[in-house]
């Protein structure tokens, strides 16, 4: 109760990183959600007159090898990339939070079992594990999201476990147990609400990396499949015409970077507000 009040007070203070991050994400998110209405052209329709057309009033970001409007494709690409990254992080959170809570709250063999299981995932470097997943299940945006979710699972679960450990030691948790509350009641009512801060900070930082991972996988042809526009796929398509039509490569990259920066700033801002102790670092 008092902890929540304190957090609100701290958040109320000047937090430029959070404001900048949220504003940027709001802009990009708005574009992604309303892409079909905002995009001036159909992202998948060819225009032979416009092949590799330079930026102009009608095509502010130019057009690509097939004469498609780059801006319209970025708008739709953002939609896909944000959807894949955010659903990956959300899915990861959905599994990681309960696992971390159980490991941190019960300790002993529950903790060991969960920790060993998570260690298994860390045996491979993240990108390699994602690629292994795609090797098994085949390329596609859903598989890419699943792969990203799996590689973030151990990171998020560990942060959750650590903050749960800290919270569980508090008197009010022991007190609740002493008053005869069930484990479930204590975890859901007392531990979880107070232990969530750091994992949310970590999740927003990981969203930034998820954007990069999704773009990288699509660039390799292993993520979102054509003709659906994706930011990484656009960079792959324009690779051969880089020197002739650099706008095909510059603008999608800037869009990825803007999204990454938005999540990075939000992460830094949230850390200041929710996790001054730095559990999520």
């Amino acid at each position: 109760m008092s902890a929540a009040v304190e957090i609100r007070a701290r958040r109320g203070r000047r937090n430029p990183a959070l404001i900048v991050g949220l504003a940027l994400l709001g802009l990009l998110g708005g574009i992604a959600v309303f892409a079909p209405y905002l995009a001036p052209f159909d992202p998948e329709s060819y225009d032979i007159q416009q092949i590799m057309g330079a930026p102009s009033w009608t095509h502010p970001f130019g057009s690509d090898v097939l004469g498609r409007d780059v801006m319209s494709r970025i708008f739709h690409g953002l939609r896909v990339s944000l959807l894949v990254s955010l659903s990956a992080v959300a899915a990861s959170l959905l599994v990681a939070v309960p696992l971390g809570l159980l490991a941190g709250y019960f300790g002993s063999w529950v903790d060991s079992a969960i920790s060993r299981f998570l260690d298994m995932i860390l045996v491979l470097p993240a990108m390699l594990l994602a690629i292994t997943f795609i090797a098994i299940l085949g390329p596609g945006s859903a598989v890419a999201a699943l792969a990203i979710a799996v590689i973030y699972l151990p990171i998020l679960a560990r942060v959750m476990r650590t903050s749960t450990l800290v919270v569980t030691r508090n008197d009010y948790v022991l007190g609740a147990r002493a008053r005869g509350a069930s484990h479930l009641r204590v975890i859901v009512g007392h531990v979880a609400p107070n232990a969530l801060g750091p994992v949310i900070v970590q999740a927003s930082v990981l969203s930034a990396f998820a954007m990069q991972l999704e773009a990288g996988l699509s660039f390799l042809g292993l993520g979102t499949q054509p003709p659906t526009p994706s930011l990484g796929g656009m960079l792959s398509d324009g690779r051969d015409v880089l020197t002739v039509a650099p706008w095909v490569e510059i603008f999608p990259g800037l869009a990825i970077m803007a999204a990454v920066l938005a999540f990075t700033f939000i992460g830094a801002g949230l850390r200041e507000a929710f996790d001054p102790a730095g559990v999520s670092e």
């Binding site: 930034a208 954007m211 990069q212 773009a215 990288g216 660039f219 960079l235 690779r239 880089l242 490569e249 510059i250 999608p252 990259g253 990825i256 970077m257 990454v260 920066l261 990075t264």
Partner: peptide, 12 residues
């Protein structure tokens, strides 16, 4: 350095 996607940096 953290925000630039490495392969895009390579392209640039």
């Amino acid at each position: 350095g953290i925000s630039i996607p490495d392969f895009w940096l390579g392209i640039m």
